[in-house]
């Protein structure tokens, strides 16, 4: 276990392992996303209230879930980086930020597009929407803070601190729909009682959620390889890498 952990912390080993992992995430992600798209758009029955308009759920819910999942992953990596001074962990946190920000943007945008026909408004300053907007700014802030330092390792540590503090926003997002009873509906699946969605709608949503998660893993792993290279500039293993390429 410790040998494995130590090896994982070694950049050249990590760089190669990450490269081999990308297709293992990417190919199943693609298959699940295609299946979820066909199922969600064409096979799932229309909603009894929203008709075919509810089909936006298949791109909205997974984006919203990844926006939070990605943030927690980034914050955990940031904490590992600070505690064990592990360069690879900082690289992982740096790789998560832009990808998480993109999914937060998608959650906000698809939610807005869904809100207009169903609620009559594009936007409302309610708890859920406002806290997700804060999440978006947290991602942007973490990225800006990292690039504000000339010394990359100082930037990594400052960004890590902000990422960790920002975690308080995650439970606020999760429970916002229970605390403030406004336009956004409460949880459909992630709750203690049975999901309030029928099986023939739910399976495609689960395919999309798993597909998004694997897609996130694939893209972050690709970025991670770049981040490891940037942090290891001038190291001998990179010179050897370039000599072989």
């Amino acid at each position: 276990m410790w040998i494995w952990f130590h090896k994982l912390g070694s950049p050249p080993h990590f760089y190669r392992t990450a490269g081999r992992l990308v297709p293992w995430f990417g190919i199943p992600a693609l298959l699940l996303l295609v299946a979820g798209t066909v199922g969600g758009l064409a096979i799932a029955p229309p909603d009894y209230q929203q008709g075919d308009g509810f089909r936006i759920i298949y791109v909205h819910v997974p984006s919203a879930y990844i926006s939070m999942f990605g943030y927690v992953a980034m914050a955990v990596a940031a904490a590992v980086g600070l505690i064990w001074r592990m360069k690879v962990a900082f690289a992982f946190a740096a790789a998560c930020a832009p990808v998480g920000a993109a999914f937060t943007f998608l959650a906000l945008a698809t939610g807005s597009i869904w809100g207009k026909p169903m609620w009559g408004v594009w936007w409302d300053w309610d708890g859920r929407m406002t806290s997700v907007l804060v999440l978006f700014f947290l991602y942007v802030g973490v990225m800006a803070l990292r690039s504000a330092f000339d010394d990359a390792s100082k930037g990594d540590r400052a960004a890590a601190l902000l990422a960790i503090v920002g975690v308080v926003n995650i439970p606020i997002i999760k429970f916002s729909v229970d605390w403030w009873n406004t336009l956004h509906q409460p949880a459909t699946i992630a709750k203690l009682s049975a999901p309030s969605i029928t099986m023939d709608m739910l399976v495609w949503l689960l395919a999309m959620v798993v597909g998004y998660t694997l897609f996130f893993a694939a893209v972050v792993t690709m970025r991670l390889r770049g981040e490891v290279l940037l942090r290891e500039r001038g190291a001998r293993w990179i010179r050897e890498l370039n000599a072989h390429a």
Binding site: L33, L41, L106, R223, R225, L229
Partner: peptide, 29 residues
């Protein structure tokens, strides 16, 4: 069901962002 503008724009935007993410990750590396 008449929601075509909303449904297709939400899916279209998602596809565009996912493709951009793959492109930018490759460029970054």
């Amino acid at each position: 069901d008449g929601y075509w503008a909303y449904v297709w724009s939400a899916w279209g935007l998602t596809l565009a962002v996912l493709l951009a993410l793959v492109y930018s990750a490759r460029r970054h590396h």
